[in-house]
Computed example of a mutant assay.
Amino acid sequence: MRHLLVFAERDDAEEVAEIVAVEFPGIGVPEVVRETLAGEDDAEDAQWLVVIEDPSGALSPEGFTRLEALAERYEGWLESG
């Protein structure tokens, strides 16, 4: 399973990625990537994603709740799929 934490600011994404790497060592170090919104020409409209790969589904319900709280704390959101 893949989880995406979405942020407007690069600094927020990088800080959250560091927190996730420490708090969830079993799922590895998340990747921070920039994603331009479809149809947007302005680079300012890009979002920053913290990509968390969890292929074995090791993330517990409590861990999922913690990811949601981190996203909200940094004015972002969590997408899973």
Rank of each mutant, 00 (worst) to 15 (best):
M1H: 14
M1N: 09
R2K: 14
H3D: 09
H3E: 08
L5S: 02
V6F: 05
V6A: 05
F7G: 00
F7L: 06
F7N: 01
E9D: 15
E9C: 08
E9Y: 13
R10C: 09
D11P: 04
D11H: 15
D12A: 15
A13W: 05
E14H: 09
E15N: 12
E15D: 15
V16I: 11
A17C: 13
A17I: 09
I19C: 06
V20M: 07
A21P: 07
V22E: 15
V22N: 12
E23T: 04
F24Y: 07
F24C: 01
P25Q: 05
P25A: 05
P25S: 06
G26A: 12
I27S: 02
V29E: 11
V29T: 15
V29R: 14
P30Y: 04
P30V: 02
P30L: 05
P30I: 02
E31G: 13
V32C: 08
R34K: 15
T36D: 15
T36C: 14
L37A: 10
A38Y: 11
G39R: 07
E40R: 10
E40S: 15
D41T: 14
D41M: 12
D42W: 07
D42S: 09
D45M: 13
D45C: 10
D45V: 05
A46Q: 03
A46D: 10
Q47W: 10
Q47Y: 12
Q47M: 14
Q47N: 15
V50F: 04
V50H: 01
I52M: 07
E53D: 13
E53H: 11
E53T: 10
D54W: 02
D54H: 05
S56P: 03
S56D: 13
G57W: 04
G57N: 07
G57C: 06
G57S: 08
A58F: 04
A58N: 09
S60N: 04
S60Q: 08
P61V: 05
E62H: 10
F64S: 15
R66S: 04
R66Y: 06
L67T: 00
L67Q: 01
E68K: 14
E68T: 13
A69Q: 11
A69V: 08
L70C: 04
L70H: 06
A71T: 03
R73T: 10
G76H: 01
G76R: 00
G76S: 04
W77T: 12
W77I: 08
W77G: 13
L78A: 01
L78H: 05
L78N: 03
E79C: 05
E79R: 11
S80Q: 11
G81C: 10
